[in-house]
Amino acid sequence: MFTGIVTDVGEIATLKQVAQGQLHRLRILCRYDQSTIADGASIACNGVCLTVVGSGTEGDRTWFDVDAAAETLGMTTAKGWRVGTRLNLERALKIGDELGGHIVAGHADGIATVLSRENLPDMARFTLRAPRELARFIAPKGSITLDGVSLTVNTVDDERFTVLIIPHTLSVTTLESWDAGTDINIEVDLMARYAARLTEMK
């Protein structure tokens, strides 16, 4: 589990396609202490929970390897990741950690698209379109995870919704690079999903 609070921005150093393109082996550079990264650990990469299969150091940076399988490549923006792509990173939640965002599974539900960007003094407002099947889980003032970042929904209009990004978030994540046409990994709030399921069962 995660909280949607980004703790580093990594960069893809190498990418190898294996199993006839159905599996991508990624090497990601980061600034985590390599001694704290165990094989089998979970790290959210742009909101996608991936399993570490190896790690080491390169110069003054740490690297870790992960595999993105066919399901991940089909459901998320991982299919478009390339060498040099920057990724929002978050280590898995430990008992006793501060829950600064909201409960995030790291299982992206699909891809949202940025429709427009409005630059404000030190901030940015984005209008996005969610997949129709996910729109019913998005509510004003509710939580949502976009590229691994826990955000609060401002407004909702059918499949469209807006988020306002504060200066700190713009400075410590990849959100500063978003613009119209950018595809974003989206994970809806788990509580909204369970509430909808309970309503369906009545």
Rank of each mutant, 00 (worst) to 15 (best):
R91Q: 13
I165F: 04
E118Q: 14
A195P: 01
L115F: 07
E200F: 04
D97F: 10
A69Q: 09
G101D: 10
A69N: 13
T199P: 00
T162C: 01
I95R: 14
L26I: 06
F137H: 12
T127G: 03
S150G: 01
A105I: 01
V114S: 01
L89G: 01
L89D: 02
R82A: 14
F126M: 13
A78P: 00
T113P: 02
D65S: 15
R31G: 00
D60P: 04
L190H: 06
L190I: 15
G84E: 13
I111T: 11
L190D: 00
I28E: 06
A192C: 07
T113Y: 02
T57G: 10
N154P: 03
A139Q: 12
D122H: 02
T72G: 12
D65I: 02
T174S: 07
T7V: 12
R117N: 05
E133L: 08
D39I: 08
I28G: 04
R132C: 08
G21P: 06
A13E: 14
D157I: 08
A112C: 03
G47A: 05
I138H: 01
D109L: 05
L120T: 09
S42K: 14
G110S: 09
R91A: 08
L99F: 11
L151R: 00
G110H: 07
L15T: 07
D39N: 13
D33A: 14
E98L: 05
V104H: 04
L128V: 04
E187G: 11
M75K: 15
M1K: 11
M191K: 13
A196E: 15
F126S: 00
T14C: 09
V6S: 04
A112K: 04
A130H: 00
T85F: 00
F126C: 03
L26G: 01
L190S: 11
G74P: 10
P167K: 09
W178K: 09
A92N: 12
G59Y: 04
A108N: 00
A112P: 03
H24A: 10
Q17F: 13
R160Y: 04
L73N: 05
A70T: 09
G54E: 01
A68K: 09
D39C: 14
N46F: 02
T169G: 12
A19G: 09
V9H: 11
R25Q: 11
I144E: 08
K16N: 15
G106D: 06
F137Q: 02
E200V: 07
V6T: 14
V153C: 01
K202G: 14
R91D: 05
V149D: 03
R86Q: 09
I12F: 09
M1P: 11
D60L: 08
G59L: 05
N154H: 08
R82L: 13
D109F: 04
V163I: 10
I165S: 01
I43Q: 10
T51W: 08
C30D: 07
I12C: 13
E118Y: 06
L151M: 12
A180N: 13
A105W: 01
